[in-house]
Design a protein around this nucleic acid. Structure first.
Lengths: 205, 205
DNA sequence: ACCTGAACACCGTTCAAGT
DNA sequence: ACCTGAACACCGTTCAAGT
């Protein structure tokens, strides 16, 4: 049997996570996959938390850089916001790991830097730019949170749409209630929200 | 010993969660707390997931309604956004449970309705209002996500501030880098971001 | 240096059996 | 109707012992 070095162990752990999510990774299953006793993992990597940190390190190393596209500063800002959202949505395991390990700052940092660079190019400087960048980041984060929860929704639970349909409230216009009950196109909504926030932040409605 | 009915079991479960978080609640500890064999819990409530759902039901029942304050429509919208944020921050256990059980829609719905009502009062109608409400909700959600992660950050991990201090990037102005490296006042930032988004959405900069 | 086996202290859950 | 005890199939982790 090949030696159970760190690289092989981390690779096997990533396969287990890719197949069944972070919860599907146990020290015992991993050891079986590597072809070794569970206790050997502890010799090579350490505790479960050490293992997860090593896995996250490897995942971060594989991430492509965030690219800005477009010619106008405004378009480039929008493209970075979209890139961040796309990258987060395509790396849910890494996001979950980072959340569990308290390393989300690390994971979101490259996007933050890219956004800051483009905000500077748009002519916003100093603490104004810092505030603007953070506002955009929070908006992007909100999409991630709510889309993620939407994706993790259990079959038995009620959707926002169903809740609106069931709501009996005369103070809200029927047409508006109906609009809220319609499922949202989050792609369109994302572009709209980012556009509105940038318009106001850049002072160029 | 008093009968181990559902009410007593749920109350004991809430105490365990309040004391040590959702992870501190196990069927066996709960049974010990109630003074009964672990298997008795299954007779009264069912599985662990059934138990957590019953606990979340009780928590939702205890939530106070979201109130709008202020006289101008804009001020009332801002106050609802702040109320949502405050309520979420004060109910982290319920938020975690809702996320695990896929019931976040239910938990965020009252705030969504309150926001919709005030958006209508501000003169925005139909699908425009629906989009505007959702944009504000996503922004509020982003604060919750990033503040939450910030709070759950492990002592060993690096903060966004430390990452900025360590960044060596000549394309970003030193003053801006310094501004990003300063810890953000999320209260101020929240008011700023909500204000900017509302200004643009309501079309009254 | 690298790995195993036994052991400890936990989990959630089922099910037959008791009163 | 309500509860227990035994049992099953899992966990993470430690540590002495082997090569």
């Amino acid at each position: 049997m090949a030696p159970a070095d760190q690289q092989r162990i981390v690779a096997a752990a990533r396969e287990l996570i890719a197949a069944g999510g972070v919860d599907a990774l146990s020290m015992r299953k991993l050891a079986a996959e590597v072809g070794v006793a569970p206790t050997a993992i502890y010799w090579h990597i350490g505790s479960r938390e050490d293992l997860l940190n090593a896995v996250l390190d490897a995942m971060i190393g594989d991430l492509p850089p965030i690219a800005a596209r477009g010619s106008s500063p405004r378009a480039r800002l929008v493209s970075v916001a979209r890139s961040i959202r796309d990258q987060v949505r395509g790396t849910t395991d890494a996001q979950q790991l980072a959340a569990e390990l308290g390393r989300t700052a690390e994971l979101s940092f490259p996007g933050q830097v890219a956004l800051t660079r483009e905000m500077q190019a748009a002519g916003v400087t100093g603490s104004d730019a810092a505030q603007a960048v953070r506002a955009v980041l929070f908006l992007v984060g909100g999409f991630i949170l709510l889309e993620d929860n939407f994706a993790h929704r259990q079959p038995g639970s009620r959707t926002t749409q169903e809740l609106w349909d069931a709501l009996d409230d005369d103070t809200i216009d029927p047409a508006l209630r109906k609009a809220m009950a319609k499922p949202a196109n989050t792609d369109t909504l994302f572009d709209y929200a980012v556009d509105r926030l940038l318009a106001s932040v850049l002072g160029s409605m």
